[in-house]
Protein backbone atom coordinates (compact mmCIF):
# COMPACT_ATOMS: atom_id res chain seq x y z
CA UNK A 1 0.00 0.00 0.00
CA UNK A 2 2.69 2.49 1.02
CA UNK A 3 4.64 1.55 -2.09
CA UNK A 4 1.61 2.40 -4.22
CA UNK A 5 1.15 5.75 -2.48
CA UNK A 6 4.82 6.60 -2.96
CA UNK A 7 4.63 5.79 -6.67
CA UNK A 8 1.41 7.75 -7.12
CA UNK A 9 2.74 10.66 -5.08
CA UNK A 10 5.88 10.82 -7.20
CA UNK A 11 3.96 10.44 -10.47
CA UNK A 12 0.71 12.26 -9.90
CA UNK A 13 1.09 14.84 -12.72
CA UNK A 14 1.80 11.92 -15.07
CA UNK A 15 -1.36 10.08 -13.99
CA UNK A 16 -3.44 13.28 -13.96
CA UNK A 17 -2.47 13.84 -17.59
CA UNK A 18 -3.41 10.23 -18.35
CA UNK A 19 -6.81 10.74 -16.74
CA UNK A 20 -7.30 13.93 -18.77
CA UNK A 21 -6.43 11.97 -21.92
CA UNK A 22 -8.95 9.23 -21.05
CA UNK A 23 -11.63 11.88 -20.60
CA UNK A 24 -10.60 13.66 -23.83
CA UNK A 25 -10.80 10.44 -25.86
CA UNK A 26 -14.15 9.52 -24.22
CA UNK A 27 -15.81 12.88 -24.78
CA UNK A 28 -14.21 13.34 -28.20
CA UNK A 29 -15.53 10.01 -29.44
CA UNK A 30 -18.92 10.66 -27.85
CA UNK A 31 -19.11 14.01 -29.64
CA UNK A 32 -18.20 12.46 -33.00
CA UNK A 33 -20.66 9.63 -32.27
CA UNK A 34 -23.55 11.95 -31.44
CA UNK A 35 -23.03 14.28 -34.41
CA UNK A 36 -22.50 11.53 -37.00
CA UNK A 37 -25.08 9.23 -35.40
CA UNK A 38 -27.81 11.88 -35.38
CA UNK A 39 -27.31 12.70 -39.07
CA UNK A 40 -27.23 9.00 -39.97
CA UNK A 41 -30.49 8.45 -38.08
CA UNK A 42 -32.19 11.42 -39.72
CA UNK A 43 -30.96 10.24 -43.11
CA UNK A 44 -32.29 6.75 -42.52
CA UNK A 45 -35.64 7.90 -41.19
CA UNK A 46 -36.48 10.73 -43.61
CA UNK A 47 -33.96 10.37 -46.47
CA UNK A 48 -35.70 7.79 -48.63
CA UNK A 49 -34.87 4.24 -49.60
CA UNK A 50 -31.37 4.60 -51.05
CA UNK A 51 -30.09 6.58 -48.05
CA UNK A 52 -31.64 4.00 -45.73
CA UNK A 53 -29.85 1.12 -47.48
CA UNK A 54 -26.45 2.84 -47.67
CA UNK A 55 -26.51 4.16 -44.10
CA UNK A 56 -27.98 0.88 -42.86
CA UNK A 57 -24.98 -0.91 -44.34
CA UNK A 58 -22.64 1.44 -42.46
CA UNK A 59 -24.50 0.88 -39.18
CA UNK A 60 -24.57 -2.91 -39.53
CA UNK A 61 -20.90 -3.01 -40.49
CA UNK A 62 -19.93 -1.09 -37.38
CA UNK A 63 -22.11 -3.41 -35.31
CA UNK A 64 -20.40 -6.45 -36.84
CA UNK A 65 -16.71 -5.52 -36.59
CA UNK A 66 -14.86 -5.18 -33.24
CA UNK A 67 -13.77 -1.67 -32.17
CA UNK A 68 -10.22 -2.94 -31.78
CA UNK A 69 -10.19 -3.93 -35.44
CA UNK A 70 -11.56 -0.58 -36.61
CA UNK A 71 -9.07 1.24 -34.39
CA UNK A 72 -6.02 -0.73 -35.50
CA UNK A 73 -7.06 -0.57 -39.14
CA UNK A 74 -7.57 3.21 -38.99
CA UNK A 75 -4.23 3.79 -37.29
CA UNK A 76 -1.98 1.39 -39.21
CA UNK A 77 -3.66 0.64 -42.56
CA UNK A 78 -5.61 3.79 -43.45
CA UNK A 79 -2.49 6.05 -43.55
CA UNK A 80 -0.99 3.73 -46.18
CA UNK A 81 -4.02 4.29 -48.37
CA UNK A 82 -4.36 7.98 -47.64
CA UNK A 83 -0.63 8.72 -47.84
CA UNK A 84 -0.46 10.70 -44.60
CA UNK A 85 -0.15 9.53 -41.03
CA UNK A 86 -2.63 10.09 -38.22
CA UNK A 87 -1.75 10.89 -34.62
CA UNK A 88 -2.88 8.17 -32.19
CA UNK A 89 -5.30 10.60 -30.56
CA UNK A 90 -7.02 11.54 -33.85
CA UNK A 91 -7.19 7.88 -34.92
CA UNK A 92 -8.68 6.90 -31.55
CA UNK A 93 -11.32 9.65 -31.48
CA UNK A 94 -12.20 9.01 -35.12
CA UNK A 95 -12.39 5.22 -34.95
CA UNK A 96 -14.13 5.03 -31.56
CA UNK A 97 -16.46 7.86 -32.59
CA UNK A 98 -17.47 6.27 -35.89
CA UNK A 99 -18.07 2.95 -34.13
CA UNK A 100 -20.16 4.61 -31.44
CA UNK A 101 -22.06 6.58 -34.12
CA UNK A 102 -23.69 3.37 -35.33
CA UNK A 103 -25.14 2.73 -31.87
CA UNK A 104 -26.14 6.38 -31.46
CA UNK A 105 -27.86 6.19 -34.86
CA UNK A 106 -29.93 3.17 -33.82
CA UNK A 107 -30.89 4.89 -30.57
CA UNK A 108 -31.84 8.15 -32.29
CA UNK A 109 -33.79 6.30 -34.98
CA UNK A 110 -35.79 4.45 -32.33
CA UNK A 111 -36.43 7.80 -30.64
CA UNK A 112 -37.50 9.50 -33.87
CA UNK A 113 -39.88 6.73 -34.91
CA UNK A 114 -41.36 6.67 -31.41
CA UNK A 115 -42.83 10.15 -32.02
CA UNK A 116 -46.18 9.56 -33.71
CA UNK A 117 -46.24 10.32 -37.47
CA UNK A 118 -49.33 12.50 -36.89
CA UNK A 119 -47.07 15.07 -35.28
CA UNK A 120 -44.94 15.37 -38.40
CA UNK A 121 -48.07 15.75 -40.55
CA UNK A 122 -49.47 18.36 -38.17
CA UNK A 123 -46.22 20.35 -38.33
CA UNK A 124 -46.21 20.20 -42.14
CA UNK A 125 -49.87 21.24 -42.22
CA UNK A 126 -48.97 24.27 -40.09
CA UNK A 127 -46.55 25.32 -42.82
CA UNK A 128 -43.26 24.21 -41.27
CA UNK A 129 -40.58 22.78 -43.53
CA UNK A 130 -39.55 19.15 -43.01
CA UNK A 131 -36.24 20.20 -41.43
CA UNK A 132 -38.03 22.70 -39.14
CA UNK A 133 -40.46 19.99 -38.06
CA UNK A 134 -37.62 17.58 -37.26
CA UNK A 135 -35.65 20.24 -35.39
CA UNK A 136 -38.50 21.86 -33.44
CA UNK A 137 -41.12 19.15 -32.97
CA UNK A 138 -39.67 15.66 -33.35
CA UNK A 139 -36.10 15.93 -31.99
CA UNK A 140 -36.89 17.66 -28.66
CA UNK A 141 -39.37 14.94 -27.72
CA UNK A 142 -37.20 12.14 -29.08
CA UNK A 143 -34.14 13.54 -27.22
CA UNK A 144 -35.76 13.08 -23.82
CA UNK A 145 -36.76 9.51 -24.64
CA UNK A 146 -33.25 8.77 -25.88
CA UNK A 147 -31.56 10.01 -22.73
CA UNK A 148 -31.20 6.68 -20.87
CA UNK A 149 -29.72 4.74 -23.84
CA UNK A 150 -27.44 7.70 -24.68
CA UNK A 151 -26.30 7.70 -21.05
CA UNK A 152 -25.30 4.07 -21.30
CA UNK A 153 -23.51 4.87 -24.55
CA UNK A 154 -21.48 7.51 -22.67
CA UNK A 155 -20.43 4.83 -20.18
CA UNK A 156 -19.51 2.60 -23.13
CA UNK A 157 -17.49 5.48 -24.64
CA UNK A 158 -15.45 5.80 -21.43
CA UNK A 159 -14.91 2.04 -21.28
CA UNK A 160 -13.97 1.79 -24.97
CA UNK A 161 -11.48 4.64 -24.62
CA UNK A 162 -9.37 2.07 -22.74
CA UNK A 163 -8.91 0.17 -26.00
CA UNK A 164 -6.97 3.12 -27.44
CA UNK A 165 -4.07 2.00 -25.20
CA UNK A 166 -3.38 -0.54 -27.94
CA UNK A 167 -2.27 2.22 -30.35
CA UNK A 168 -0.27 3.94 -27.58
CA UNK A 169 -2.61 6.82 -26.81
CA UNK A 170 -1.18 8.02 -23.47
CA UNK A 171 -4.39 7.39 -21.51
CA UNK A 172 -4.88 5.72 -18.13
CA UNK A 173 -4.21 2.10 -19.05
CA UNK A 174 -1.23 2.86 -21.26
CA UNK A 175 0.37 5.03 -18.56
CA UNK A 176 -0.41 2.43 -15.90
CA UNK A 177 1.54 -0.06 -18.00
CA UNK A 178 4.43 2.42 -18.16
CA UNK A 179 4.43 2.79 -14.37
CA UNK A 180 4.14 -0.98 -13.90
CA UNK A 181 7.16 -1.58 -16.11
CA UNK A 182 9.15 0.91 -14.02
CA UNK A 183 8.04 -0.21 -10.56
CA UNK A 184 6.73 -3.81 -10.88
CA UNK A 185 3.71 -2.91 -8.72
CA UNK A 186 1.32 -4.62 -11.11
CA UNK A 187 -1.32 -5.62 -8.55
CA UNK A 188 -1.52 -2.22 -6.86
CA UNK A 189 -1.41 -0.11 -10.01
CA UNK A 190 -3.87 -2.14 -12.09
CA UNK A 191 -6.28 -2.24 -9.15
CA UNK A 192 -5.91 1.52 -8.68
CA UNK A 193 -6.71 2.15 -12.36
CA UNK A 194 -9.68 -0.20 -12.12
CA UNK A 195 -11.05 1.87 -9.23
CA UNK A 196 -10.50 5.10 -11.16
CA UNK A 197 -12.57 3.75 -14.07
CA UNK A 198 -15.28 2.57 -11.70
CA UNK A 199 -15.41 5.98 -10.04
CA UNK A 200 -15.89 7.61 -13.45
CA UNK A 201 -18.40 5.15 -14.96
CA UNK A 202 -20.63 4.20 -12.06
CA UNK A 203 -21.83 7.73 -11.15
CA UNK A 204 -22.46 8.47 -14.84
CA UNK A 205 -24.70 5.40 -15.13
CA UNK A 206 -26.55 6.23 -11.91
CA UNK A 207 -26.71 9.97 -12.64
CA UNK A 208 -28.34 9.37 -16.00
CA UNK A 209 -31.00 7.18 -14.38
CA UNK A 210 -31.72 9.87 -11.82
CA UNK A 211 -31.80 12.72 -14.34
CA UNK A 212 -34.13 10.71 -16.53
CA UNK A 213 -36.68 10.17 -13.78
CA UNK A 214 -36.88 13.97 -13.46
CA UNK A 215 -37.18 14.64 -17.18
CA UNK A 216 -39.27 11.68 -18.33
CA UNK A 217 -42.54 13.65 -18.36
CA UNK A 218 -41.12 16.07 -20.97
CA UNK A 219 -40.95 13.24 -23.50
CA UNK A 220 -44.55 12.13 -23.23
CA UNK A 221 -46.92 13.09 -25.99
Amino acid sequence: MTALFNVLWANWPFMAKALAMTLAVSFGSMLVGIVVGTFVAIGRTYGGRIADIVLGFYVDTMRAVPVLVILVWSYFALPLLAGRSLSPFVAAVGALGLHLAAYVAETVRAGLTSVRPGQMRAALALGMSRWQAIKQIILPQAMVRMLPPLGSLLVIAVKDSAISSVIAVPELIRQTQVLVSNTYLSFQLYSFTMIVFFVICYPVARGVDRAYRRLAHLGSS
Binding site: K159, A162, F187, Y190, S191, M194, C201
Partner: peptide, 23 residues
Protein backbone atom coordinates in the same frame (compact mmCIF):
# COMPACT_ATOMS: atom_id res chain seq x y z
CA UNK B 1 -22.43 -7.03 -11.32
CA UNK B 2 -21.99 -3.26 -11.02
CA UNK B 3 -18.23 -3.58 -10.81
CA UNK B 4 -17.90 -5.65 -13.96
CA UNK B 5 -20.37 -3.45 -15.84
CA UNK B 6 -18.63 -0.21 -14.92
CA UNK B 7 -15.00 -1.05 -15.78
CA UNK B 8 -13.40 -1.68 -19.18
CA UNK B 9 -13.08 -5.29 -20.33
CA UNK B 10 -9.47 -4.76 -21.48
CA UNK B 11 -8.55 -3.73 -17.96
CA UNK B 12 -10.37 -6.76 -16.51
CA UNK B 13 -8.36 -8.99 -18.83
CA UNK B 14 -5.06 -7.29 -17.88
CA UNK B 15 -6.03 -7.57 -14.24
CA UNK B 16 -6.82 -11.28 -14.52
CA UNK B 17 -3.55 -11.83 -16.37
CA UNK B 18 -1.13 -9.85 -14.20
CA UNK B 19 -2.82 -9.75 -10.82
CA UNK B 20 -4.68 -13.04 -10.37
CA UNK B 21 -1.45 -15.12 -10.38
CA UNK B 22 0.06 -12.79 -7.73
CA UNK B 23 -2.80 -12.68 -5.23
Amino acid sequence: VEFFRATPLVLQIYWAYYVLPVI
